[in-house]
Design a protein around this nucleic acid. Structure first.
Lengths: 207, 207
DNA sequence: TAGATTGTTAATCGATTAACAATC
DNA sequence: TAGATTGTTAATCGATTAACAATC
């Protein structure tokens, strides 16, 4: 299959489409037009059609989009068509909160284990907390698709290196640092401090 | 002062500039060129100069940018030139993690209180947890500049309404929902589920 | 001064929006 | 069929990059 490069702007809208379509599906609505969907997201109908067209288009002229089909197509595009095994590195404040994060389960991400360089508790809501020294052997013995970095900034790069070294190719990073990772590793950052400063800017400038 | 409208793209880069400049400052470096700064952030020198030019420009031709001055200008632009009083609504997993979030203190945000509709603990790391019924009276009796929403999705809009009703004009929202707020309220969302789905997309599509 | 580097205008690029033929 | 709505091309808009005069 010839792969079209999808722009970052489009990729960032995919979860929004998915959320809206899921809502429609939950409400028992089974048909939606680009116009109505656009209104839900506060964007233009043109953009909706243009975006979906990137993936081949899943609509029917004169009818609109079938909600069930659209939902399933979006899920497949984003890789929600199967489960993932996840480990969390760092069992501090954020790591523990993530251990209980409902979003993981909701989208098929199974948190299998947590790691900490100095574990002070042995499980978080039923998830076992291992010493970081056991990280490589755990990954060797278990299938791990994704790792979450919830360590302090100082540890993050070396943790990332160990994650990558163990063969994991997907990292969700909560540490406030731009990690260096090879091209074949997918990474996504949650940058709380950047978000807070953006809010601070808006607050000061009434935006 | 005639206010120039700053694009969202520029605003999102401000925290990145600030972080880089702070690093330089910590290293004792007191001068930087647009070229060197651009390289640190992985962008072009043109963009750095263009961005700073939006705010009047703080460099010196033939020399570059004075790090101390640049840091201070960026801090002022983002409103980091004074402290803010913050309250957190929702003392669940995420609320509690945020109670211990170091980033707040680092940038002058003081977490003064937490609220929960059903408090099971009475303080989080020294921050008192109040019953949500006391929210309005607390805000009346104390200066509150910013509220964090760390409630479940179902409660988020009504919590937002109470926050706005109490006169707070700045909201940091962690609930997975697009809140309806009046124009004069600044809001910024941390959307963990959207971030997770973007990572899922990248992982599936090797991006 | 000569070299360096900004501030800013102009050119380019990419994303968004508009338009409309295709077609259900 | 006629009306509706997509898929897709073309036009527009805005952001990024290039270029260079200003000037330290």
């Amino acid at each position: 299959m010839q792969k079209k490069v999808i722009s970052e702007a489009v990729v960032k809208r995919l979860p929004k489409y998915y959320r809206a379509v899921k809502n429609l599906s939950d409400q028992g609505i089974n048909k939606i037009s680009s116009n109505a969907l656009a209104e839900m997201l506060g964007i233009t109908a043109s953009q909706v059609r243009q975006d979906f067209c990137n993936f081949g288009g899943f609509g029917q002229q004169g009818y609109g989009y079938d909600v069930a089909k659209l939902k399933q197509e979006l899920a497949t595009i984003m890789g929600l068509d199967h489960d993932y095994n996840v480990v969390i590195v760092g069992a501090g404040n954020i790591g523990r909160a993530l251990g209980g994060y409902q979003g993981f389960e909701k989208y098929g991400f199974k948190v299998r284990a947590m790691f900490d360089s100095n574990p002070v508790i042995d499980n978080v809501g039923g998830i076992k907390v291992y010493n970081m020294s056991q990280f490589e052997s755990y990954v060797k013995d278990n299938t791990v698709d994704m790792a979450v970095i919830a360590t302090p900034k100082a540890a993050a790069q070396s943790v990332a290196d160990r994650i990558i070294g163990s063969g994991i190719k997907s990292i969700w990073n909560f540490a406030p640092i731009d990690l260096e990772v090879p091209d074949y590793v997918s990474i996504e950052n949650i940058s709380m401090s950047e978000s807070l400063l953006v809010l601070s800017y808006r607050t000061k400038n009434n935006v």
